[in-house]
């Protein structure tokens, strides 16, 4: 359980897809002019990542890893189809996006219309392929963790594009120098946000070390103070 929570927060804040590894920057820059469209695209990215990362994990486990083909028969134990990863991942992503598009169009035409061109464009968003490739290179261990990773990376990307869209809407009324207007200032602001997100790097360092000893409880024993109160009645004459 703890590793799920750790992976969740790590993927959103520390390994944020936009600020730490710069995935999905093209659509991030192009779509962040209004908050409403940014939210739509962010939600679509979360959805597609949540589906494709576990699917590609299954492919990686049972087809692509060295020795993965053992389930076909023991003589296949030495095959290493790792070099096919790129083509298989991108094929599943393109197919899944196409499927999602068809399903969304059938069951929720209003959602389909509001997403518009973004849904097919997601297939070539490097954040999606990047999610699967990082899942492979970081050797995520279980299907549950893969789902977790997909959703949390998506949420990280969503947070980033939401923040930059909100900022861009506000700075449209600011006095940005002409050559920096639009794209230039967005780059710089994103860089500053990235610096801010670096501060999350210290968030989970406690988890990797040995569990610290519980701080010793300082017990204050109430010592009974025995007072001998001499009850001496002095009769003063």
């Amino acid at each position: 359980m703890i590793e799920h929570i750790e992976l969740f927060f790590k993927s959103i804040f520390i390994d944020n897809m936009v600020f730490a590894v710069f995935l999905g920057m093209c659509s991030y820059l192009a779509v962040s002019k209004k908050v409403a469209t940014a939210v739509g695209l962010g939600a679509a990215v979360i959805f597609v990542l949540a589906i494709t990362v576990p699917l590609n994990w299954l492919l990686d486990q049972y087809l692509l890893q060295p020795g993965a083909l053992v389930w076909l028969g023991p003589e296949f134990a030495e095959y290493d189809l790792g070099f096919l990863s790129f083509i298989m991942f991108i094929a599943t992503i393109a197919t899944m996006v196409q499927l999602v598009e068809i399903v969304v169009e059938k069951f929720s035409p209003s959602l389909y219309n509001s997403l518009g061109i973004f849904l097919p464009l997601i297939a070539v968003n490097c954040a999606i392929l990047g999610g699967s490739l990082f899942m492979q290179s970081r050797e995520i261990e279980t299907l549950g963790l893969a789902v977790n990773y997909g959703i949390s990376s998506g949420i990280g990307w969503f947070l980033a594009i939401l923040a930059i869209a909100a900022i861009r809407e506000k700075i449209r009324y600011s006095n940005v120098p002409a050559p920096l207007r639009g794209l230039g200032i967005t780059f710089i602001v994103t860089g500053l946000m990235g610096i801010g997100f670096l501060s999350f790097g210290g968030m989970l360092t406690g988890g990797d070390e040995e569990v610290e000893e519980a701080p010793k409880e300082v017990v204050v024993e109430a010592t009974e103070i025995e007072k001998e109160v001499p009850n001496q009645l002095k009769i003063v004459n």
Binding site: F19, F22, P179, L183, F187, I188, G191, M193, G194
Partner: peptide, 18 residues
């Protein structure tokens, strides 16, 4: 660190558009 690359590209854009 990654964020500095963003700022450098922003500066390149500034120079280019000026």
């Amino acid at each position: 660190m990654p964020p500095m690359a963003l700022i450098i590209v922003g500066l390149i854009i500034w120079v280019q558009r000026s």
